[in-house]
Write a protein that binds this DNA or RNA. Structure first.
Lengths: 203, 203
DNA sequence: TCGTGATTTGACCAACTGGTCAAAGTGAGG
DNA sequence: CCTCACTTTGACCAGTTGGTCAAATCACGA
């Protein structure tokens, strides 16, 4: 049923999504115009709309593609691994994503900040299920005495917030630090923070 | 020079700012229209513009008023107080603000996410100075052995991010938790998180 | 080389939106 | 009750923007 994509289609769709990511992450959905995206993609506006039905379609396609990538680090947290290493590894991966993919982080943040109208369902289904599953794992680690007692949901929220902060609030972080690159120190700090949080008290 | 405000001016300006906060925090600057704000304020559009020069003027006025309120909790951190109590008190106040003033938090978050074009200068002056000052205090507490060694800047970032997360990403938090009010558990969790982070190791 | 479907575009449109303005309405002090 | 400054508004405008369309151009297999 699905016709295979021609090389031109592939190239142009990719260019449009890339341009869309650039523009949407800077100005938000309502703040971005088709002309901006078209120019950034090196295409004419009608040509954009030949590949995507509407502005919203570009935005939605982008979000959906993004969601997988975004959940992947949590998915990779291994129930069989060493608990503290697994959680710290998750923090590490998440912070690295903030550094490597700040545009994606900001696009996502903007969507949620404005009420997540395009992905509400996804959040309350897939995301919720995934977090619930990992929360169980964390509770088991706790029961086994491998980590200190902790609310797994809020632990995850705090990992999300602290790591994404360096992408989403980048301007503020740099204003406060005066231009020093924050990521190295952030990694050390967050490692310490969650290590102290999770290390079981000596008996 | 400044004429005193009449009662009508006071009432209407207040109504406009309140409506602006409501609308801007939901849709962002570009996503909000004067008509929306006017309707929400119970005024006609030209009447809005009798009180504020432009849409941007409403937004800017709102941001400036907000900034004081926003920094106040950090300002109140007392160098003379008990270190751990002071920092945990700050966390507490900040989370309470997320609960009581989510619109303000989201408005602020949106501004920064989009590059903080209206308050960039403020961030790199006032905010930066305030944080630097408090960082010194925290370092002194550390030197006195009252708290565990910690990077004061990233400590503050992590307090901002974890507390504001409950306002800014409210939709996501509630989607994951399935409607349970997050704030009580969040308070317990964050108290634990920062207490474990800051409690000095036994010698 | 040709024909056909895929691709591209200039011209255009309707809706929306920020902002203006002249005129009408209103209320508090004299 | 009158006046004058303050307040309010309907009508309007110009720029922007998402989206359409018919016609032109291109690319590729036969």
């Amino acid at each position: 049923m699905n016709k295979p994509e021609t090389r031109i289609q592939q190239r142009n769709r990719t260019a449009i999504l890339s341009a869309g990511l650039d523009v949407f992450s800077q100005f938000g959905l309502r703040g971005s115009t088709l002309d901006q995206i078209a120019e950034s993609a090196g295409l004419s506006k009608p040509n954009l709309l030949y590949y995507f039905r509407s502005k919203d379609a570009i935005y939605t396609a982008l979000l959906e593609k993004l969601l997988e990538t975004w959940l992947d680090p949590l998915l990779k947290m291994d129930p069989q691994g060493d608990p503290i290493q697994e959680i710290l590894g998750y923090v590490h991966r998440k912070l690295t994503m903030s550094k490597e993919y700040p545009r994606e982080s900001r696009l996502f943040a903007n969507e949620i900040l404005l009420g997540a109208p395009h992905i509400a369902e996804h959040l309350s289904k897939d995301l919720r299920a995934l977090v619930a599953e990992k929360a169980v794992v964390i509770k088991e680690w706790e029961a086994a005495g491998k980590i200190a007692p902790v609310d797994p949901y809020h632990l995850i929220f705090s990992i999300w917030s602290t790591t994404q902060h360096y992408a989403d609030f980048d301007v503020q972080v740099r204003a406060v630090l005066g231009g020093i690159d924050p990521f190295d120190d952030a990694m050390k700090y967050l490692d310490t923070l969650f290590r102290r949080m999770l290390t079981p008290p000596k008996v």
